[in-house]
Write a protein that binds this DNA or RNA. Structure first.
Lengths: 137, 137
DNA sequence: AGCCGAGTTACGAAATTCGTAATCGGTAAG
DNA sequence: CTTACCGATTACGAATTTCGTAACTCGGCT
């Protein structure tokens, strides 16, 4: 993981469809080197996967979840990651334990999700923030 | 946004490098149709961008920022989106106003960022959560 | 029936990716 | 100092994919 790797990653984060040839030109090396390095980064797990960021609905939200003290947050996270409309599940430090990043069709879908969370036995409380605006660097 | 679109999105979410030809074969249509639809989905903003999910070994964090009441949060967001290590800037509802999603090399880099935020005149307070674990759906 | 328009298909050209062999640069051993 | 070696890089032709564009299909509408 040297400077060249980081520059390649930055470009791919911005647009994962950038051709190797174009990346190579930008960072000043050859297509083959970019190809080798990207392949290595995938093998090493630095690049977990190539994916798309979607906004299928109109509403994004963060749902901050507090679970009971005797609960394994890993298990709860794993479960919630499978839920519909959930993009990310973060285990976080601080007052709450888990943050869900949600992309839903409407407020009802968000509400369904919160309801589902609150109905879970291990969940003590939830706090929801609507994401009113998003900027990507 | 019909069933075909959704199937294409599912495939791209799993692997955004899947060739259109392969997607076409999988969903039972032609390369051109997949190409047209992906292009439309990008235009409509359903696909926000093609990107990579990385596990750099870096430190991820959420920095929740409260700004003064008489401040335009749009301006502050725009500014912070340019800061190094900041992946997302969200304007959110709730107690705090802005949430920064940060991916930094180490705790010092995160601390620098928090310091920079706190030194900003319009920022009243910050609250930081480390992201200890991330799951992607 | 005839027409229109959005979506789909077809196909040759351009660009990209891929496989592989040659080359380079650094380093440890003789 | 030379040689051998190894991983990384480069070079290049072949295979594959993407791209531009024109033809086609199939509803709905008059």
């Amino acid at each position: 993981m040297d400077e060249l790797d980081r520059r390649i990653l930055d470009i791919l984060r911005r647009d994962a469809r950038t051709p190797n040839t174009e990346i190579a030109a930008e960072v000043g090396t050859s297509e083959g080197t970019v190809r080798n390095r990207v392949e290595r980064l995938v093998d090493e797990g630095v690049i977990e996967r190539f994916t798309i960021a979607t906004r299928t609905g109109n509403l994004k939200a963060m749902v901050e979840v507090t679970v009971a003290v005797d609960v394994d947050t890993n298990d709860v996270s794993e479960l919630m990651a499978e839920w519909k409309d959930v993009d990310f599940v973060w285990q976080v430090s601080g007052e709450e334990d888990i943050v869900l990043v949600v992309d839903a069709a409407d407020t009802r879908a968000v509400n369904d999700l919160i309801t589902r969370a609150r109905e879970h036995d291990d969940v003590k409380s939830t706090k929801t923030r609507l994401i009113l605006d998003e900027r990507i660097s």
